[in-house]
Design a protein around this nucleic acid. Structure first.
Length: 693
DNA sequence: GGCATGTGTATTTTT
DNA sequence: TACACATGCC
């Protein structure tokens, strides 16, 4: 068998790709060809005769899985569809996130652990709504001024579950201010798990927990474990305890597991990811082979030097020695800007300059710590007609109108889902929280399916809500294909198509929508997009599951639609940029409080993780790296005058680090020249701090 | 019990 | 800025 793909690999990559059976840990620094190596390994396994459906490839996003499978397909001379997806045998490789794969397995093996097949998956904000509902019903928070809010509750719960840490310990370590409410929180959590179970709703954590049970103690455990001959895991440094348990269970009989990761890029501790997984891999999987990839193919040496300098000051040293033979190249630029507006202008100018020199917009990215950090830039880009796609931050799926639409579809899919019923009933005029609660209690009473009851023998709404309630019933009847009781049929039934259902739902929703939102036209685009997505699905079940597990992450609100097929700039949070690379990278807001985020500097671990975040951002760049530092921040709070404060350069850009940058001077706007705020950011800042501290 | 209006507040990162 | 919560009127 001639394997031409092997020839393009270096020695370390080659040994990783051709590794035989048994556990394999690939410690891969940034830009060392990790994706290529993993894709090559998939191709190699296929070429060695492993059936595609016996390979499981776990990645952090679906995008990553699709990309790897595409590349493996190219190497295996596999065919591709018009839109670039792999076809042929390679397409049968099981690829996706832990959560998506869990969902797929649970649809097959759910009955083995007593899970109804029509379970629905709820996202974090649905989970928060359920927490809220329980909190109100229990009255735990009554009279308490500072009882944890719903989002905090979900965060605490998730942390406890994903890290396998006792609630008390989680509170002590991460939420000390909630300790006094321990009992109330515990009570809410107990009800939360019972309610979810009764409603056949799984949250993100449940998907993993149920997979773990499935692979350890269910009657189907043996079958599930035997399903895969090889398991490959990407971004292993960002897995949590439950995910590690799953892998160990799945490999209890046959330890063919390959994981790839970089401890220096571990940035998901807020999701309970633990660096221990990658460090302890050899203990978890005895006999593991460890391969280090240290040659960086992505960045020029000057960019690498600056990035390494940032990491060199980390509290814990890492034992990788990244190098590149791309020795030439421009030093990274540290651009001091007068304020955020100046930063936006400078970014745009640099982008346009590169564009004119032949660097496509798609080869350029703007990275930032938090979703809203690009708000002002987005306006500036729109003004200059520079098209862009934004990844991360507030998503399509999280907007109220989309959630409304999905809740309507979800009660059709899983009529036991009370969160969705509640949301839907509140949409109706004349029905508030009290009536909604009463109606739901009547609907979910034991006996018939709640949906059947809604259609055949509905409870009485309050007089003011009669019309809306009846309209809801009519819509549900149409969508369920006029089937009488027992409508939760398989997708093969001859009912309306997914697209037709979405259309009916939309027609029902339209008047509510027009009434509730004044910027309805903007939001209408989203709903149209939802309909388009629906058109690609044959079953409502997979449509809903995919939307929850792999929501569209890109928004382009301000970009012009006609440009979208064309070239566009990438805007992304640093988290969402993981694994990506661009020729030119622009890192915004290298100011203390932004990077590191104010929210994260509470403890040493947080400060160190933020450092890795900056490192991840910088190492995305191949040829040009710009780091921007706005000196002045305006505060929206006061509408009068120009209330502002002076920022301090990010604490990670210390003097030794700065030596690796070319600094571009602060440009003071002309009308500000007389204000005297010249000189370095630091001196001004120190001066002002002296006044207050 | 529903709904409009007013006030206060806290604001990361994502499956 | 937007959302959660309180108040007071129908």
């Amino acid at each position: 068998m001639s394997a031409t793909y092997l020839e393009s690999l270096n020695a370390a990559q080659g040994s990783a790709v051709t590794h035989g059976d048994g556990p394999l840990l690939i410690v891969a620094g940034a830009g060392t060809g990790k994706t290529k190596t993993l894709a090559c390994r998939v191709a190699h396994l296929l070429a060695s005769g492993v059936p595609a459906e016996r390979i499981l490839l776990l990645t952090f996003t679906r995008r990553a899985a699709a990309e790897m499978i595409r590349r493996a397909s190219d190497m295996s001379a596999g065919a591709r569809t018009a839109d670039g997806r792999a076809t042929g045998p390679v397409a049968r490789v099981w690829g996706g996130t832990f959560h998506a794969v869990a969902n797929r397995l649970l649809r097959i093996y759910g009955p083995a652990i007593g899970l109804a097949q029509e379970f629905t998956v709820c996202d974090q904000s649905d989970a928060a709504d359920l927490m809220n509902m329980i909190r109100e019903q229990l009255g735990v928070a009554k009279g308490k001024r500072r009882f944890p809010k719903k989002n905090t509750l979900v965060a605490i719960y998730s942390r406890s579950v994903s890290a396998g840490e006792k609630l008390g310990d989680v509170l002590r370590r991460h939420y000390p201010w909630c300790l006094e409410d321990l009992d109330g929180i515990r009570e809410i959590f107990q009800h939360y798990t019972v309610r979810k179970r009764a409603q056949q709703v799984l949250d993100y954590d449940d998907l993993l927990l149920y997979w773990r049970v499935l692979a350890t103690e269910s009657p189907a455990a043996g079958e599930v474990r035997n399903r895969f001959e090889h398991i490959l895991v990407d971004e292993y440094q960002d897995t949590n305890t439950v995910q590690c348990d799953i892998l160990r269970a799945m490999r209890a009989d046959k330890a063919n597991i390959s994981v790839v990761g970089d401890d220096a890029q571990s940035i998901y501790s807020f999701r309970a990811a633990t660096i221990r997984n990658i460090l302890d891999f050899p203990e978890h999987f005895p006999g593991a082979t460890v391969v280090k990839l240290e040659q960086n193919y992505r960045s020029t040496q000057p960019i690498l030097a600056a990035s390494n300098a940032v990491m060199a000051e980390a509290a814990e040293r890492y034992t990788k020695d990244l190098w590149s033979d791309r020795t030439a190249g421009q030093k990274p630029i540290l651009a001091h800007c007068w304020d955020e507006q100046a930063q936006c202008e400078m970014v745009c100018e640099n982008i346009v300059k590169h564009l004119e020199e032949g660097v496509a917009l798609q080869q350029q990215a703007v990275l930032f710590r938090a979703g809203h950090h690009s708000d002002m830039l987005e306006v500036e880009l729109a003004r200059r007609n520079i098209p862009f796609h934004k990844y991360g931050g507030l998503k399509f799926i999280e907007s109220a109108h989309i959630k409304d639409m999905l809740a309507l579809l979800r009660i059709l899919e899983n009529p036991h889902d009370e969160i969705s019923w509640f949301r839907v009933l509140l949409l109706l005029e004349g029905i508030g929280p009290k009536s909604a609660r009463r109606l739901i209690d009547a609907l979910v009473a034991p006996g018939a399916s709640p949906l059947a009851r809604m259609l055949d023998d509905p409870p009485k709404p309050p007089p003011a809500g009669k019309a809306g309630f009846a309209a809801l019933g009519d819509m549900l009847r149409v969508c369920s294909g006029l089937a009488p009781a027992g409508v939760e049929e398989e997708e093969t039934s001859s009912g309306p198509t997914v697209a037709a259902q979405v259309e009916s739902v939309r027609r029902f929703y339209d008047p509510i929508f027009q009434k509730n939102y004044d910027n309805a036209t903007m939001r209408l685009r989203d709903i149209e997009q939802l309909e388009q997505i629906a058109a690609g699905y044959r079953s409502r079940r997979s449509f809903l599951a995919d939307l929850t597990l792999d929501p569209p992450t890109s928004t382009s609100d301000l970009a012009q639609p006609p440009y979208l097929d064309d070239d566009y700039l990438i805007l992304s949070t640093i988290h969402s940029a993981k694994g990506c690379e661009w020729q030119a990278v622009h890192v915004l807001h290298a100011a203390d409080g932004m990077i590191p985020s104010d929210m994260a500097v509470g403890d040493q671990a947080g400060v160190e993780e933020e450092r890795r975040l900056l490192y991840v951002a910088m190492t995305r760049a191949k040829d040009w790296l710009y780091v921007y530092f706005p000196l002045r921040y305006y505060h929206r709070k006061s509408p009068f005058g120009d209330a502002h404060s002076y920022a301090q350069l990010s604490r990670y850009i210390t003097d030794p680090v700065r030596k690796h940058f070319d600094e571009r001077a602060l440009i003071v706007p002309e009308d500000e020249e007389t204000t005297g705020h010249r000189g370095s950011a630091k001196s001004v800042d120190d001066l002002l701090r002296d006044l207050w501290e």
